[in-house]
Design a binder for these strands. Structure first.
Lengths: 239, 239
DNA sequence: CCCCGGCCTTACTTTTACCTTAATTTTAAG
DNA sequence: CTTAAAATTAAGGTAAAAGTAAGGCCGGGG
């Protein structure tokens, strides 16, 4: 498993045993650095609570106010923070989550689950910031770009808009890009009832699609016919 | 407790008992709408996976492939998705989280915990996104400017004020500017109850909106019809 | 209390963009 | 070469959306 971000983690805990466990788990998962700190309040300045960092708290801190500490830090930063707890106590779980913790994990936990949950939180917190400009889901075919949410096809000679049927068909092909999609399967995703007889209808729509996404519709480069089987949307890589 | 966002939730589950439970919990927590769907694959088009929506899956779907479905949807949308499971099985939890679920909650769960976890996820996913567009509260369309706070539309020939319905509809379109919004989705954001005969009602309001924001209502430049799909508020850039 | 005006809804007709049909031509496999 | 599959046209057909007008609801003011 690989993490998406170059994340550092500050572990607040007193039991060296669990620190080591976390270090092992998280290192294996690709996190770059794991630091332990006995007294987080003092060490706070050292670990800037910035972008690719996160905090893991052990609920059972010696002075017993892990929640207070968490609340305090939360006011200063929105970095991911999560609790580890020795015992599964409903009240504490609600309290922790209510204070703004991103998760609350009770021991014994599966190492892999910790990693997955952590990765998920990091992804949600940082992904939106990073991918703001390219958040759109687009299909790129050479010089042509299709945006499914807006239904716009951008080409070198102007923009075109997809009709409902074209949209449905192209989306299906896109979802199976690189694989052959049978005519039957295509029909089922664009029509409610099974389209009796006239397979021709599908062909006409394919033609219109080609007119919109292909440079030369009669010499398709992307929306390919697989005779006797169906159609295939070629992947950029293996054309 | 109050939620931060105007969140709708699609509940995928077969047991009416749990649907009702969720509805109760989430309504009390301030979520505006909860919809159930027996077959998500078929219903997918109906619930545009747009900004303030989320999906809750029951792992034990009748056909047993809730994971597959989740994975499929995840490819298409980054809206929050979480699993509910009847039994606490490590493998499934890992699988669910690994596929990109935002959380995996096992029954019996505390209602309040569900709400807290949900709110947390929504906050993390939408907070960063929403602060951006809502920073400015004006919609600029060529020579026309719409101020949402005051509901005033400034045009070259005088000011007009938006009615309640027009305001709600335009806001929804604005929040999804550049993307196609289904008629259904629009209705749900402008009417509380499900509107029975809304076929024309929506259209009439769209018409009135066009009369206020378009230069020539019969040749719309901004509020575009996407036949068979919905409406779209064009972005200045790709018109 | 009743009328008035703004807003929303309903009902109906008209328009049009998209889809289907069908007939012909081209392509490619055996 | 033969033949089935797919492509290409272009002409209607059709359902979705637009347009229009009348009626209903509700709150404010006379």
């Amino acid at each position: 498993m690989k993490t998406i971000f170059d994340a550092k983690l500050l572990v607040v805990d007193d039991e060296p045993e669990i620190i080591n466990l976390l270090k092992t788990i998280l290192h294996q998962a690709g996190f770059t650095q794991v630091i332990s700190a006995e007294n987080c309040r003092q060490a706070r300045e050292l670990f800037a609570l910035e972008k690719p960092n996160g905090v893991i708290f052990d609920v059972t801190l010696p002075d017993g106010d892990g929640f207070l500490l968490m609340q305090e830090l939360r006011q200063q930063s929105h970095v991911p923070m999560l609790f580890l707890s020795a015992r599964d106590e409903d009240e504490n779980r609600l309290l922790g989550l209510g204070l703004g913790a991103d998760d609350y994990i009770t021991k014994p936990f599966l190492p892999r689950e910790l990693v997955l949950r952590l990765s998920g939180i990091l992804r949600r917190v940082y992904q939106p910031l990073q991918t703001q400009p390219l958040a759109e889901e687009c299909l790129v075919l050479g010089t042509v770009t299709v945006n499914f949410k807006s239904g716009i096809v951008k080409t070198s000679d102007g923009d075109k808009t997809l009709t409902a049927k074209e949209h449905a068909l192209l989306k299906k092909l896109w979802e199976n890009q690189g694989h052959i999609v049978t005519a039957d399967s295509l029909c089922r995703s664009a029509w409610d009832d099974d389209l009796y007889g006239y397979e021709n209808t599908l062909m006409v729509h394919i033609r219109r699609l080609r007119e919109k996404i292909e440079v030369d519709p009669s010499q398709p480069q992307y929306l390919l016919t697989i005779r006797g089987m169906g159609y295939k949307l070629a992947k950029e890589s293996n054309r």
